[in-house]
Design a protein around this nucleic acid. Structure first.
Lengths: 113, 113
DNA sequence: GATATAAGCAACCAGGAGGTTGCTTATATG
DNA sequence: CATATAAGCAACCTCCTGGTTGCTTATATC
């Protein structure tokens, strides 16, 4: 699945188990379900469901290899989420810069009503 | 509430209504509940609940002023979420750089087993 | 060919999320 | 003082989520 809506992206990241999976995949290497679930206090099916959610949000890529299925992180999705947050920060900066300019302009001309 | 766990942060952002509220607040100005809910196809209480979630995750700051309650975006929380994603990207880059170095090293010394 | 291993499918369950409505309380304003 | 407005509280409902278990299917391996 391709990069989805920002809300689905964040929603998929909004679970500590899935965040752990993402971190585990953050080296760019691909891993099977059992590898990813190793050490986690839940069943293989639960892990598979979490990976389904990540895949549904476009955060991971899925590749079948023999009897195994390998998952790899999709960097573009991570960047998409990061970009959304960047836009928020940018608008903040932009507005504050404009406000500051306005205030300075106002001070030069005298106090505002 | 102060900046919380990354999972709570992303979870709070994982809803299109709340993303809309965050975007609406991204100019840094504070707004009341009614102002924030204006135009949204839901009751005031629903909006208040969403703002509660954002506040619980540390994404907004709450200030009482007379009979109104004003909400403002907390930039540090946005940056915290952005930073987490940045770490993932960075590890990706780091591993790839190391891998590339290893491959080049390997090529100089001959093919790996 | 027999057996072990990886994954898929389906049913089920408890609890939380997102929404509603009705009523109350507190602050502004005519 | 009377009334309008902003917000809080609580109960309720439905649907989704995160987890389970049991069984099946497909691929490796001895």
């Amino acid at each position: 699945m391709s990069a989805a809506e920002p809300a689905s992206l964040f929603s998929a990241l909004g679970d500590s188990t899935r965040l752990g999976l993402v971190r585990r995949l953050s080296d760019g290497r691909e891993r099977s379900i059992v590898q990813l679930g190793d050490g986690l206090p839940m069943s293989r099916q639960a892990v598979a469901k979490h990976l389904d959610v990540l895949h549904g949000a476009g955060l991971v890529h899925r590749r079948r290899s023999g009897r195994e299925v390998h998952y790899a992180l999709r960097r573009d999705a991570i960047e998409a989420a990061r970009h959304w947050l960047g836009e928020v920060s940018a608008q903040w900066d932009g507005t504050l810069a404009r406000l500051k300019a306005m205030v300075e302009e106002g001070n030069r001309q005298g106090p505002l009503p």
